[in-house]
Design a protein around this nucleic acid. Structure first.
Lengths: 150, 150
DNA sequence: TTAGTAAAAGACCTTTTTATCTTTTATTAT
DNA sequence: ATAATAAAAGATAAAAAGGTCTTTTACTAA
């Protein structure tokens, strides 16, 4: 549904929103270590996110990544569409090219309400709002020992 | 969430349950054509499904694939676990290695009820029951838009 | 018993995804 | 200025997923 790349991107952008600021920029390495993501891979993802104005960066000493107020207004869907090139959440769960209420796959009516919910959250909530909620709820952003096999 | 391989396997097994029988076995090619799946790839998947007794086959003229009564009692979860090597539906939506009510990822409480529902259906309903429902509801099993339906 | 059929087996190929490494460029503190 | 720092850029590599092809084996009907 989501690529590993977009999962990394979502988690690390939320992490930035929570922990970084214009005054306290963060390096790829420190973020990669914090959420347990391969740092050269994350560096590549961040390059892409900077280019499309989802996150910001400056080079040199005290440089690093952070979010501007503009960045904070982006959404998780923006991240997914940038990294995966499309919104795969919307694809049919069983792979049908054309799956809808009139032409439903065998699980369409189970999957549809879920998609509406998660899609709504990812589209209607800004990164900042999402990050605030994450903090308030004590949600976890660390992959920890993510299964690197499989 | 599901690999393409397991999607193919699920759809074609349901298709077999609906259209094949001990008296009317079906070839890989006819099934592959019907549901729009690459036939050499489906052949490989079917080999695997035969080996683990989810579907059955005989060689030679009038040979092909079909389901025994034993096969009909298998579940979609059996297919997924055989083809994907694990049940990826149960993985955390954002990739956390350990994601549960105490250690929730940012979307855990949205994803969890959906997983319960779809997992329940895939585990508690036999292939035969599922196929009957598919038939009754007129659900679609064809990957492409081309309606090959009756 | 033989010709034709269809699956089994296994080798092989391609593309995509994930991940790493090296060099260059921009920034800043001294 | 210069040395240190950290991201940008780009080349490369490893692994997984998806897909194809050829040969062998089993079965059946004429």
């Amino acid at each position: 549904m989501l690529s590993r790349a977009s999962k990394y991107a979502i988690l690390s952008t939320l992490y930035l929103a929570e922990h970084a600021s214009k005054e306290k920029k963060m390096s790829v390495k420190s973020i990669a270590n914090s959420i347990n993501v391969p740092s050269p891979f994350l560096a590549k993802l961040f390059q892409q996110l900077v280019k499309c104005n989802i996150i910001s960066s400056t080079k040199g000493p005290n440089g690093g990544f952070f979010l501007t107020e503009d960045n904070e207004k982006k959404t998780v869907i923006d991240i997914i569409e940038e990294i995966d090139g499309t919104n795969k959440i919307d694809d049919c769960f069983l792979g049908l090219a054309k799956c809808d209420g009139n032409n439903p796959c065998p699980v369409h009516f189970i999957v549809e309400p879920f998609k509406k919910k998660i899609f709504g959250k990812f589209r209607d909530q800004t990164i900042k709002e999402f990050a605030n909620e994450v903090e308030a709820q004590g949600s976890v952003l660390f992959l920890s020992g993510l299964d690197k096999k499989k």
